[in-house]
Design a binder for these strands. Sequence first.
DNA 1: ATTTAATCGTGAATTTTTTAACAATTAAAT
DNA 2: ATTTAATTGTTAAAAAATTCACGATTAAAT
Lengths: 211, 211
Amino acid sequence: MKKFPQRTVTRAFMYLRALDSLIEEGKAYVSSGELAAMTALTDVQIRKDISVFGKAGKPRVGYDTRRLKQLLEEYVVQNVVHVVLFGVGNLGSAILRYPGFQEDKIKMVAAFDSDPNKVDKAINGISIYSLDKAKLLIQKKHVEIGVIAVPKQASQQIADLLVSCGIQGIVNFSPTTITVPKGIFVKNIDLAVEFLSLFWDMNAKKAPRYA
Amino acid sequence: MKKFPQRTVTRAFMYLRALDSLIEEGKAYVSSGELAAMTALTDVQIRKDISVFGKAGKPRVGYDTRRLKQLLEEYVVQNVVHVVLFGVGNLGSAILRYPGFQEDKIKMVAAFDSDPNKVDKAINGISIYSLDKAKLLIQKKHVEIGVIAVPKQASQQIADLLVSCGIQGIVNFSPTTITVPKGIFVKNIDLAVEFLSLFWDMNAKKAPRYA
DNA sequence: ATTTAATCGTGAATTTTTTAACAATTAAAT
DNA sequence: ATTTAATTGTTAAAAAATTCACGATTAAAT
């Protein structure tokens, strides 16, 4: 795995999403300017990013959508990532139903909930288990990432459980911080932070660099 | 509004969240190292960030949690931001029930849905209206940010609606890109992108700079 | 065949962000 | 009262990311 600029990689995933739309609607070519409009970035940024991976465009016509997708995937998409979810409330259900996971890249393996009424059901084909099944399943299925979507009182406890299962990465949706040992990667998605920082950007009247 | 480093501001919101937890549990002081553990950042980064706003710590003891909160809020929290939501499905409901909005900073004003069965109900005290009420309400209540949580086929249409209502910022949860005129701020929250980029960071074995 | 206009690709300059190093301060220990 | 150890705050250095400027390329127009 070569070393590319971190932000370039993140944006590459955004480009892939945009390319999927374009390919779906049958567009054969796209210019950096059009991609810029779709992603709220600048055309220069996009050309620069793409150039990191190789030459993929034709002057005067733009990028072949399929070819560009292929190029980005070659460098940026790795093995399929295996994910489990904790907490099948509103948010958890929404995540299980999320229509944006391409099965060949992201595999939602299982969900867990402490509520016996939810256990043994399934949403979108993903089975819901009781918490005590977590360790076995996570290890057997080589799960890399755990998602925390439980009420905030329980989130640290789930984080501890995840760590004890040997998981490497956590996406935390609960509006509170969790503490984990060094070496575990955590991504907090906090709606309040998103709103407030977007609002700040708006007031600072500066175009956001990346969303 | 003074100009602070953009990333410092974003992280300031994270610190505020952490401070809320600490204050709630009665902690009077916190060191940069402890904050670092809570936020998955480094202690140096945190001290540097805080120093941008002023001096708030005492050597050997750390930061007074309340005082630090006050300091950060003074510079970083602006007027209350008014938000409306489109799409009261699983995800939309989860957002309406989100327990992390402090009313004095983020005010969820209304929700909209095209399904007549949902209209005229309320979730968490927030009323649900039909789409044709949007323009009036948004303008009357001075709403700055709209959240898109509708199925992806409808997301561009809602984006257009939001723009026509004069909204300035959009948070888009649907797994597709939307295009808006220049000057409108868009933040895309795409779970697939989050998972894939977290997974990339994990494999690159580099501590993430900010979550 | 020539010109024109659109678009990519890139090296250099700039800006922003992070990291490092360390002096200053303070509470606690002796 | 002195020493020690923890912790902040800051200046400077380094690294990363973005923007700029412009040459190169190519399709379309004339």
